[in-house]
């Protein structure tokens, strides 16, 4: 098991979260649950963003990067997606993943030390939040579920519970 301490370790952990997201979006697309053009466009773009995040985090983590999806998180994601039998349900599941990703960056920000590492995490966190808004809009979720007054760490994935594979 790779260690997730230090900036590089945290970035490697964040990369594993991003790669789990890339994988689950790929699987959702293959499953054919998402069918409307707007939702297909949105999820395709969002998956590309996660791929870009993973690449940047991998570069930042250097030799600590494993370049593989976080196994436990992917297992969790797959379990949630399996329960979604139609597009709205799949979108709601994806909203949850994006909120968890944003929350994870909140957690990571609390431990990062170097300014470039903080800046990278802070450049990604709002994008995950925006993804959640886009998907929630497509799923017609209520504003109260979409717009918290503060982002929190409450839904964060943590390396001790979801270690980098």
């Amino acid at each position: 098991m790779a260690q997730s301490s230090g900036d590089a370790g945290l970035q490697a952990f964040a990369q594993s979260v991003e790669l789990a997201l890339v994988q689950v979006y790929t699987e959702v697309a293959s499953a054919g649950t998402i069918t409307s053009p707007a939702a297909i466009d949105a999820t395709t773009t969002i998956a590309q963003h996660h791929q870009e995040h993973a690449r940047a985090l991998g570069d930042a983590a250097g030799s600590r990067a494993t370049n593989v999806p976080n196994r436990r998180i992917l297992t969790r994601f797959r379990a949630d997606v399996r329960k979604a039998s139609d597009e709205p349900a799949a979108l709601v599941a994806l909203v949850g993943f994006e909120n968890e990703a944003a929350s994870t960056y909140m957690f990571v920000l609390g431990s990062l030390e170097a300014t470039p590492a903080l800046q990278l995490a802070a450049a990604i966190l709002p994008v995950e939040s925006e993804h959640a808004v886009v998907l929630a809009g497509l799923a017609h979720m209520a504003p109260a579920q979409t717009f918290p007054s503060f982002e929190t760490q409450d839904q964060a994935f943590k390396p001790d519970e979801f270690p980098v594979s």
């Binding site: 909140m106 802070a122 994008v127 939040s129 809009g137 979409t146 007054s149």
Partner: peptide
């Protein structure tokens, strides 16, 4: 105080949600 980084982005993320909407 480094913990303010977290506090600032807890608000910054919320503002980004507003902008995206």
């Amino acid at each position: 105080d480094k913990s303010f980084n977290v506090a600032a982005m807890s608000v910054g993320g919320a503002e980004s949600r507003h902008a995206a909407a």
